[in-house]
Amino acid sequence: MNTITITLAKQAQLYLEADLITPDQFAGKSTAEIGAIEISEGKIRYPLASFAKIEGAAGPTPEETRIVLNGDWSRVKRIGQQMSAGEIIINSNVDMYTGGWMKGGKITVNGNADSFTGIAMAGGELTIKGNCQNHVGSAYRGDWRGMTGGVLRVMGNVGNDIGTFMRGGTIIVEGDAFIHVHTHGEGGTIIVKGNVEGRVGGQSVKGDVFVNGKIDYMMPGFKYVDDVTKEVDGVSAVYAHYIGDLGERHPDVKGQKIFTNLYLKK
């Protein structure tokens, strides 16, 4: 695997949009060609080299390309958008849409990420070592197909709308979440190791949600069924098992209604 290191040397007055910083775009390109890749600040477009120092070399394919981002990337959006393979390591905070629509590969953020992180993610591994804001692994506005695959792990806390319209994949939040977890969910798994204020599984059709901490306000549409032992992220524990949302439509499979399972650690 080849490593290419980009150090952000200059800050933009507003925010930069860098949806072309992906192994897919970098693969097979020379350092000069990578430096010419466009980033934009509002309606003005710049070559990447005008803001950053580029060292190392990209691999011949995305799979063989690792991108390391140094410097302060907290005002840069859309890093790793739609990437399909390879690796990005961000040694900084980042702004919105990190790993949005990603299909494969691996992104590690050694810092915080803003909203819309991993939005409509379809595959790969996205790890945020710090906190995230809102709409983590959720759907784009008006799209009923949210996250469909991959593993999105946030080691810190998150805001609202976690996995909205989720259909597959796994979201693991090691800290707390605010409200709206798995809202409109149609599949997938969400694990929250901390507490959630409320609205877990609202309008959710099917899928699995695990909460290890407390839920301050439980949705009325969730009904206790039984206690079960489950292995969650490598740790086995007893959970109270609820089904719901009873206020939402649910498909029939072989004469049996399918619900969303909510597991609350005992």
Binding site: G198, G202, Y217, G221, K223, G247
Partner: peptide, 24 residues
């Protein structure tokens, strides 16, 4: 908590009135 109250109304419309908590 309007969201919770809507959920309760929807439960009734979906035939789960018996499962409503005492207060929503």
């Amino acid at each position: 908590h309007d969201y919770d109250l809507f959920d309760a109304f929807r439960m009734v419309m979906h035939g789960y009135a018996a499962d409503l908590p005492d207060v929503v």
